[in-house]
Simulated assay, not measured.
Amino acid sequence: MNSTIMAQEAAEAPQRIREQLAANSSTITTIVQQIGKRAPKYVYMVGRGSSDHAGVFAKYLIEIELGLPVVAAAPSIASVYHKQLQLQDALVLVISQSGRSPDILAQVEMAKAAGAYVVALVNDTSSPLAEQADAVVPLFVGPEKAVAATKSYLATLSALLQLVALWSAQPQLLAAVESLPALLEQAQQLPAQLTPASVATVKHGVVLGRGPGYAIAREIALKLKEVCGIHAEAFSSAEFLHGPVTLVKDQFAIIDVSVADEALAAHKAQVTEVQNRGAAVVQLNHGALTSHPRVLPLLVLQRFYLDVEAVARSRGVNPDAPPGLNKVTKTV
Results as ranks from 00 to 15, higher is better:
residue 328 V to M: 08
residue 116 A to R: 04
residue 235 F to N: 05
residue 302 Q to N: 01
residue 113 A to W: 02
residue 310 A to R: 14
residue 47 G to R: 04
residue 24 N to W: 07
residue 137 V to T: 08
residue 99 G to L: 04
residue 159 A to I: 00
residue 193 Q to L: 08
residue 39 A to R: 12
residue 329 T to C: 10
residue 48 R to Q: 07
residue 285 N to L: 14
residue 284 L to G: 08
residue 33 Q to D: 10
residue 105 L to S: 06
residue 164 V to Y: 09
residue 106 A to E: 04
residue 209 G to S: 11
residue 42 Y to L: 09
residue 179 S to E: 11
residue 283 Q to A: 14
residue 288 A to V: 09
residue 175 A to D: 06
residue 52 D to Y: 11
residue 327 K to A: 15
residue 260 A to Y: 12
residue 315 R to C: 10
residue 160 L to R: 07
residue 284 L to M: 07
residue 119 V to H: 06
residue 185 E to P: 03
residue 81 Y to I: 12
residue 326 N to R: 00
residue 208 L to P: 05
residue 20 Q to R: 14
residue 178 E to T: 09
residue 207 V to K: 02
residue 103 D to C: 05
residue 208 L to I: 02
residue 181 P to T: 09
residue 321 A to S: 10
residue 162 Q to F: 13
residue 41 K to E: 13
residue 133 A to W: 08
residue 91 L to S: 08
residue 263 A to N: 14
residue 259 V to R: 05
residue 18 R to D: 02
residue 207 V to I: 09
residue 152 S to M: 11
residue 50 S to R: 10
residue 121 L to Y: 00
residue 61 L to N: 01
residue 233 E to Y: 06
residue 253 A to N: 03
residue 162 Q to A: 15
residue 38 R to Q: 12
residue 7 A to V: 14
residue 65 E to P: 00
residue 262 E to A: 15
residue 108 V to F: 07
residue 11 A to K: 01
residue 8 Q to Y: 00
residue 22 A to R: 12
residue 231 H to K: 13
residue 293 P to H: 09
residue 12 E to R: 13
residue 304 F to K: 10
residue 14 P to C: 08
residue 171 P to I: 05
residue 123 N to K: 00
residue 280 A to M: 07
residue 132 Q to T: 03
residue 207 V to A: 12
residue 72 A to Q: 07
residue 46 V to K: 06
